[in-house]
Computed example of a mutant assay.
Amino acid sequence: MKIRDYIFNSLLGKSGVVFYDSRWLDSGGIGRFCKEIMASKVTADTKKIEGPISQALSVKDLFLSSFITVNGAYFISPGYNAPLFSCSKAIITVHDLMHLYFSEYQSIKNKLYYDIIVKRTVISAPLVFTVSDFTRQEISRWAKIPIDKIIVVPNGVDHEFYHEAVLPIVRDRPYFLYVGNNKSHKNLKRLVSAYASSGLSTEVDLLISCKPTPELSLLIAELDMTERVVFLCGVEESDLPSYYKGAVATVVVSLYEGFCLPILESMAVGTPVITSNVTAMPETAGGAALLVDPYDINSIRDGLVDIWQQKLVRINLVELGLKRAQMFSWERSREIWDDALIPILEK
């Protein structure tokens, strides 16, 4: 249902009505969260707001969504969009506060939206959802709200899709795998530089799931790694477990993550993980990954070499990773979501 349908169907003013913003379905990582949480018992009974994600983040939508909250209904979002008025009836999900740290997210529009709309909603809402304790702590400091008001609903693993018996892709050469986009905080320049300096390119390739940026392509050419750094330019969801399974290790050395689901997806199929020792990544890894300093090319390089050369390290990480991944499921995440919402909605 679109918000305007809600308005014109005379549902305004009916307290107890709950709306869930499903427009986040096609928005990458938040889209996965949106889809899985939509199947929770509480959310399944809500009215769904449909449309493109661009609509949800428009200025017009600030007012349209306010029709919901001003008239006594709840507006619940798996993302960070919020109404302009009656924010005490809005419950949103803040997955990270990346805009505080990276210039590409610090446009005037983003700053105003977070500092005025999001922060005010976080302060006024009966509760706030997030995906990790790291982000929970950040939100509490940023908005100056009690930490117990913020509920952690971690991302989950689909264990029917990601499991140890997955068959690997067939490839002539072994490879390290990076899964994610090419934004600057993903730290791909340092990853490529570390790989080039490791001396491993004669034995193992580096597969990157996204498209290269012009700057990254230039760096790879300068390092003479064009034949060994392979850009997949997108991987089908159905093929992703097999790419994880076939890798020597999954390497995610971001400068910042609010959760980092590829860590757990890789662990769930039995592939070791190299990841960063900053932000939420150590929390997600839970001691089951090889941690490196993402700002230090030598640290990343040493991690690649250790994983490639030390079989016992790989075996240990596989065992630890399989156990760690089992601790996360969408079923459990939906339970946490429902347990937090039911007391609020029943008031």
Rank of each mutant, 00 (worst) to 15 (best):
D45E: 12
K41F: 09
N81Y: 01
D26F: 01
G51N: 08
V42S: 10
T69I: 03
S54I: 13
L57T: 14
G29P: 05
Y80H: 14
P78A: 01
F63R: 07
R32M: 11
K41S: 15
N71V: 04
T46R: 12
E36N: 15
S40W: 14
G51T: 06
P83E: 00
F85E: 04
L57P: 02
F85G: 04
F33I: 10
T69H: 02
A82K: 02
K41L: 11
S86G: 05
C34E: 12
L25F: 11
G72T: 00
S40I: 13
I76C: 12
S54D: 12
E36W: 10
K35N: 08
S27F: 15
L25C: 09
P83Y: 02
I76P: 03
G72M: 00
I76M: 09
K47V: 13
R32Q: 15
I49P: 10
E50G: 06
N71D: 10
V59T: 15
T43N: 13
P78H: 00
V42R: 04
I53E: 11
K48N: 08
G31I: 04
G31R: 06
F63D: 04
L84A: 03
P83G: 00
A44K: 15
G28C: 08
L84N: 01
I30T: 10
L84I: 01
I37D: 11
F85I: 03
Y80L: 09
A73K: 03
T43G: 15
A39H: 13
I49D: 08
V42D: 08
L84F: 02
L84V: 00
K41Q: 15
I76E: 06
F85H: 02
C34M: 09
I37L: 14
F33W: 08
E50C: 13
A56K: 07
F67K: 05
P78R: 00
F85W: 02
A82H: 05
F63H: 06
A44F: 09
S58Y: 06
F75T: 06
G51K: 11
A73V: 06
I68K: 03
S65H: 00
I37T: 10
G29D: 12
T46H: 05
P78Y: 00
F67E: 04
L57V: 13
S66C: 03
E50R: 12
I30V: 15
S58G: 07
K35E: 14
I49N: 06
Y80D: 08
P52N: 05
V59D: 10
I76R: 10
T43H: 07
P78K: 01
E36L: 10
P52G: 04
I53A: 14
S66Q: 01
